[in-house]
């Protein structure tokens, strides 16, 4: 593993070069939606982050980034899957929610695979094999997540134990 601070991901570095990785944009999404006085806000944002203005590609989005599949059933499958896949460069958003180019390219990838008849499960597995469970909002049951899945049962057991203790002890009166 390499030094952490140099490769800070999502926050654009003050002088581009400081960040090892290029955060794959966020500004295009802002630009297309905001107008008028909000431009001042955007300008402030740019000033605040000092993100290099050239640090975004000039290609149009991939065909299926913003275009639905013609078959509604397939589109529904793709949409459901995309909502449970995590955007890699705008962490905390699903690829369905993000306007980052990489998220758009991933939507294109998902829709293309669905259109070709692949199952959502297979596509999720395909991505997990590359990015790890991190990319999925549907964590599997394994060593790392066992506590997560079992905690409700655990708390229920503790609650029952306390409740029964209280009820049984209640007859004996307070010490």
């Amino acid at each position: 593993m390499r030094g952490a601070p140099l490769f800070n991901w999502c926050i654009p570095a003050k002088a581009g070069i400081q960040s090892g990785h290029e955060p794959r944009e966020r500004h295009r999404a802002l630009g297309s939606r905001l107008r008028g006085s909000t431009l001042v806000f955007v300008a402030t944002l740019f000033a605040a982050f000092g993100a290099p203005a050239t640090a975004q590609d000039r290609l149009p989005p991939a065909p299926y980034a913003y275009q639905q599949l013609a078959d509604p059933a397939k589109e529904a499958k793709a949409k459901a899957l995309m909502e449970t896949l995590r955007c890699l460069v705008c962490q905390g958003q699903s690829i369905a929610d993000s306007d980052a180019p990489l998220a758009g390219d991933m939507r294109h990838e998902v829709r293309t695979k669905i259109a070709a008849g692949e199952s959502p499960d297979a596509i999720r597995k395909w991505l997990v094999a590359r990015y790890g469970n991190w990319v999925s909002y549907d964590p599997p049951f394994d060593g790392a997540t066992a506590l997560l899945w079992l905690a409700p049962l655990l708390f229920l057991a503790v609650g029952l134990w306390l409740a029964f203790g209280r009820l049984r002890g209640g007859g004996g009166g307070e010490p």
């Binding site: 090892g20 990785h21 290029e22 290609l59 460069v89 390219d105 991933m106 990838e109 590359r130």
Partner: peptide, 17 residues
């Protein structure tokens, strides 16, 4: 790699890698 398809197939999430 115009649509990042090879990048995704490699499990890569940024540039440079």
């Amino acid at each position: 790699d115009v649509q990042s398809s090879v990048q995704i197939a490699l499990g890569s999430s940024g540039v440079p890698e």
